[in-house]
Each structure stands twice: as C-alpha cells, then as structure tokens.
C-alpha cells in the first residue's frame, strides 16, 4: 500500500464513520496519517478527504473483526472509541491493521506500542466507569432522580446497564457535562440523548435533609487517629469532588 504521509481523513465523529474510514483505506489501498473528527481546527491548506458514513460498509468492517481477529478485539475497538485518548481514531485504525495482519495473536502483543496504548486507554475508561458506579450522586426531584457527572471518557454507555438494572422501577437521568450527553431511563426504557445545558430546579426539604444526614455519616465514619488525606486523594481524586454531595460546600 502506498504510504502517503500527508493523507488526512475527515469523518462525522460516529463509530460507523470511523469504521468507514477503515473500509476506505483498505478499498483504496492507502494509509491515512490523520483521522479527524468534526470540530478540530483545520490548517490553511487542508486537503482532508471526507469519508461518508455508510451503515453497510461499517457492518462489513465490524463483522470482519471477530471473524478475522477475535471477538475480544471487537470489544476492545468498541470500548476504544469511548475513550478520551488523543487520536483514538488513528489508534483504533492502526490496531485493526495489526489485527488484520496477525489475527487473534494481536491481543497478546502487549509490548507493541499500538496495542499497549489502546489497552491502556481502555483500561482508563473502564476504571473510570467503575469509579462512577460509586461516585454518581442522585438528587431527588419529585419522582425522578437526577445526577451530573464530569468524566474524562465517555462512560455513559458503560454505566447504563448497571444503573438501569439497579433502579428498574425508578425514572432517572445522568447528565454528562463533559460530553453534553444524558442517559435517560423511564418506563423501563433507556436512551442516550444529547443535552447542551441542564438547569435544575431548587431541591425540596426532604432532599436537603437526606443530604445533611449523608454528610454527617460521611464525617462521622472517618477515624480521626487514622487521618490520611493523601490516601483519600489517591483513591478519590479531586476532580470527582465537585459533583459529590458529601464534599460539596453548602
């Protein structure tokens, strides 16, 4: 394949779109050096090639992953797309190239820079989403529960199953401020919708009371003689505090 170092793909930012970039590269026998999502600054003489999203092409690429590499590789790619890794598109693309060359063995190539970087990014995503399973704080507004999070990665798809299963009978929303998206669950149905801004009404007296009780519990359980703020900071970095009831200032 000719390796044109200046080849730039631009796509619509969707997973389908990215898979179409992979399709295009194989169809045209060319290797892009940049795969650009929308909203990224273009240089003056930008000659990016626009890649149209096409479900059919995307499916072909997606289905070829378990067939030619492995289903674990397919999972890794899906998760990789949710990460906040810089140039995640190129990383996924390069991983797939390796995969289509080496087959299922690619998953054991832990010392390869691409494989290693993608695994790391996915690990960051899954560990962040695990943290949020605990750190999400709902407030009760009438019949509904509402939470706001500010994650680095796009964790909502990973949180969805967990919270929908846990709160089957509830109606809730988790608003992801970073990615301007919200997970909305009501009448046993969940959907991801895009939300640019969220203004919440004042909370009622019951809500205020439970917040007070929780804060008191939080303060009381700490054993003074074991005070260890550093350790707390390691396990629960400050960036999470802003949306956690027990650490908010009144």
């Amino acid at each position: 394949m000719p390796d044109r170092t200046d080849l730039i793909y631009a796509y619509d930012g969707s997973f389908v779109g990215l898979l179409c970039c992979v399709f295009e590269s194989y169809a045209q026998k060319e290797i892009p050096s940049v795969i650009r999502p929308p909203g990224v600054q273009q240089s003056l003489f930008d000659t990016a090639k626009w890649i149209e999203s096409d479900e059919h092409k995307a499916d072909r690429v997606f289905n070829s992953i378990p067939a030619r590499i492995s289903s674990q590789a397919q999972e890794l790619v899906k998760l990789g797309f949710l990460t906040c890794a810089p140039h995640k598109e190129l990383l996924i693309y390069q991983f797939l190239r390796l995969g289509f060359t080496y087959g299922s063995q690619v998953m054991t190539m832990l010392t390869n820079d691409t494989v290693c970087a993608l695994q790391k990014a996915v690990h960051h995503l899954t560990s962040e989403s695990h943290k949020f399973k605990g750190f999400v704080r709902f407030s009760v507004y009438g019949e509904a529960l509402v939470a706001v999070i500010e994650p680095k990665n796009f964790v909502l798809p990973l949180l969805s199953l967990h919270f929908c299963d846990r709160f089957r009978n509830e109606a809730f929303m988790i608003y992801d401020k970073t990615n301007s998206m919200a997970l909305v669950y009501r009448s046993q149905k969940a959907e991801l919708i895009s939300v640019d801004e969220l203004t919440l009404p004042e909370v009622d007296a019951t809500e205020v009371e439970y917040r007070r009780l929780w804060k008191q519990f939080y303060t009381t359980v700490a054993i003074e003689g074991r005070n260890n703020p550093r350790c707390r900071m390691t396990l629960m970095p400050k960036r999470y505090w802003g949306q956690m009831t027990e650490l908010m200032h009144d």
Binding site: Y218, A222, R226, N228, P229, R230, C231, R232, L235
Partner: peptide, 13 residues
C-alpha cells in the same frame, strides 16, 4: 463498589 472515601482514606461502601 466503593461509593466514597473518608478522610482516613478508607472505602465507604
């Protein structure tokens, strides 16, 4: 799942 960490660094679940 840890839901928080108290000032002594212990998990609150």
């Amino acid at each position: 799942i840890c839901h928080s960490f108290s000032a002594d660094g212990r998990c609150i679940s």
